[in-house]
């Protein structure tokens, strides 16, 4: 075998692997990525029931209801719209009313969101990224400044 032919075989082999990988990536990106939506998006767009999405916003104050066993129901709001979420399981430590949260799951009939994953904010300074961005878009959160909902008069914030 000549040097060129050997090289040719190897380059062809590498290209086959690469092509396979590109195919896998494209297929996976089409099928397994999950879009993030806010309650307003759900109201505005027709998102089919059963499609896997992430829903994020603030846990509406006073909405958390514990049902049988470990069933929990709460509402996610982005201050304009509100969506009821059902979840079965243990809520994360930092899950609190009025705080940011991201859930993953699918819509059920009756516009109820059935979540199988609930991610609360990670630490005291962190708000789930998508939630923060979505709230910012609504003008409720100024950059670097205080968190959602505070376009409030801010003599209050003297915190260092």
């Amino acid at each position: 075998m000549t040097r060129r032919r050997r090289r040719g075989i190897m380059i062809a082999g590498a290209l086959v692997v690469l092509a396979a990988a590109v195919g896998l990536v494209l297929a996976a990106l089409r099928e397994s990525i999950v879009f993030f939506h806010t309650p307003s998006d759900l109201a505005a767009k027709a998102i089919p029931e059963g499609q896997r999405i992430r829903l994020g916003g603030l846990v509406a104050v006073g909405s958390v209801k514990r049902g049988e066993g470990v069933d929990v129901q709460f509402a996610i709001t982005d201050t304009a719209e509100q969506v009821t979420v059902r979840y079965r399981g243990v809520l994360p430590d930092l899950f609190r009313e009025g705080q940011g949260v991201v859930t993953e799951g699918a819509l059920e009939s009756g516009r109820v969101f059935r979540a199988d994953t609930v991610l609360a904010k990670h630490d005291e300074n962190y708000m789930p990224r998508e939630v923060a961005d979505a709230l910012k878009e609504k003008g409720l959160w100024q950059h670097g400044g205080p968190p959602p909902g505070t376009g409030t008069p801010q003599p209050a914030v003297e915190k260092k």
């Binding site: 104050v61 009025g98 959602p148 505070t150 209050a156 914030v157 915190k159």
Partner: peptide, 14 residues
């Protein structure tokens, strides 16, 4: 509570 939440009226503050 409010100052601790950067000026947000949290559930406890409310």
């Amino acid at each position: 509570h409010m100052l601790a939440n950067d000026g947000m009226v949290s559930e406890a503050a409310r």
